[in-house]
């Protein structure tokens, strides 16, 4: 699955869609772009303390900073049955936006 994104016409930065200017260089020359949903875990945490709200029944669950093959960084969930086995460098692929604010990845292997 591709990820709706923008690409900067000046510096080439790729970023999830929703910004008015390039967040890296401030350029207004941004174009819509479909980012490949392939990447790896740049860093992560297993969120264990969720006393209430929509993630209560999901905990412990993985929140990660994912770095895609285009060097796009985004914060996302990584859906896995073994959250405590996650490590930096694990390959992941984009599954979908669970809701407009929540991108979800899964392990690629």
């Amino acid at each position: 699955m591709n990820i709706p994104a923008i690409k900067c016409g000046d510096c080439g930065t790729v970023h999830p869609r929703g910004v008015a200017v390039c967040p890296a260089c401030g350029s207004e020359k941004i174009q819509e772009y479909e980012a490949k949903g392939e990447g790896e875990i740049h860093t992560y945490t297993v969120n264990c303390f969720v006393p209430a709200g929509k993630f209560k029944d999901r905990a412990p669950y993985v929140i990660a900073v994912v770095r895609t093959v285009e060097n796009m960084f985004l914060t996302a969930l990584v859906d896995t049955e073994s959250p405590f086995n996650i490590k930096i460098g694990d390959k992941v692929r984009f599954r979908h936006y669970e809701d407009p604010l929540t991108p979800v990845f899964e392990l690629a292997s």
Binding site: N47, V50, Y61, L74, T75, L77, D99, T102
Partner: peptide, 10 residues
């Protein structure tokens, strides 16, 4: 950032 990072429970 509500738009980009609240949706994962940050």
């Amino acid at each position: 950032d509500y738009r980009y990072e609240s949706g994962v429970g940050m």
